[in-house]
């Protein structure tokens, strides 16, 4: 089965308008705005703690903002009916696989629960998806028996089983070795190219962002400070961009000392 058969519906556009979110006194998102075209791979980069994952949670509907809007295909992401009518899926940072179920059951859960196919078709689709991601031998394994890279691929496979129109990835290459990071990056690009679905990838992996992203957004302290093509990002003279892309290791005046001294 080609990957194109894992997505049946049209990809959707995503629009984020002036999104604000605070936890207690700490404002995490300071009015983030962006738009993602149907079928685009949009990569959100930024240092840890800048609000990238919080933004992703708003898009998938797991969090509600203090103000602002997220529209998926022109409909509010905060209405559960939107996620029923438009199939959205997320690959969590740690996979969030169901630990009490085998890999096979993890993949079969969505179509079984929503009664999308009969059991024979579900079996065929699960095995085909596992085969595409070179996971056919892991079908009966439990998540605890998988390596980090395999967990990520199973998480992608599970998301593909939902036949999504919009697929979000939260730090898909974190904690992986460079080869496995490259494999996951290739996987994201291939899935996007062959299925045409809209992808939003949160990552601070420079290689991934610059090689597979159609556009890249850079977040800094809850703001989207840059949005543009990877080449524009590389050419940018903005100190925030250059510092993020090419951080210099300065042993004479280390950054953590500056943070400690509040400078």
């Amino acid at each position: 089965m080609p990957l194109s058969q894992t997505v049946k519906k049209e990809p959707v556009a995503v629009e984020v308008k002036d999104l604000r979110k605070s936890y207690g006194d700490h404002e995490v998102l300071h009015g983030v705005s962006l738009s993602v075209a149907p079928g685009e791979i949009f990569v959100i980069m930024g240092a840890s703690g800048t609000g990238k994952s919080v933004l992703l949670k708003h898009i998938i509907g797991l969090e509600k903002p203090d103000s602002g809007e997220v529209l998926i295909g022109g409909r509010s992401a905060f209405e559960s009916s939107t996620h029923r009518d438009i199939v959205t899926a997320i690959v969590f940072q740690d996979g969030a696989l169901f630990n009490s179920m085998s890999v096979y059951d993890n993949l079969a859960l969505y179509p079984r629960e929503h009664r999308i196919y009969d059991s024979k078709t579900i079996h065929e689709k699960v095995m085909d998806t596992l085969r595409i991601l070179s996971l056919e031998n892991a079908a009966q394994k439990m998540p605890s028996e998988l390596s980090g890279g395999m967990k990520k691929r199973v998480a992608v496979a599970r998301a593909l089983m939902t036949e999504p129109q919009l697929l979000l990835y939260d730090e898909p290459t974190s904690e992986l070795d460079p080869i496995m990071s490259a494999t996951i990056s290739e996987l994201i690009a291939t899935v996007s190219r062959q299925t045409g679905l809209t992808s939003i990838v949160v990552s601070h992996d420079r290689e991934l962002s610059l090689s597979i992203g159609h556009r890249v957004g850079l977040m800094h302290e809850g703001n989207m400070t840059f949005i543009g093509a990877p080449d524009e990002l590389k050419a940018s003279k903005d100190p925030l961009v250059t510092e993020f892309l090419n951080p210099k290791i300065n042993l004479e005046n280390p950054r953590f000392r500056k943070t400690e001294n509040g400078k």
Binding site: T88, I90, L109
Partner: peptide, 17 residues
């Protein structure tokens, strides 16, 4: 609680289950 902490509950919600 373990399912909640390790985001399995979130995963269910995003799958409309």
């Amino acid at each position: 609680a373990s399912m909640k902490i390790y985001r399995e509950v979130d995963a269910l919600q995003t799958m409309n289950i």
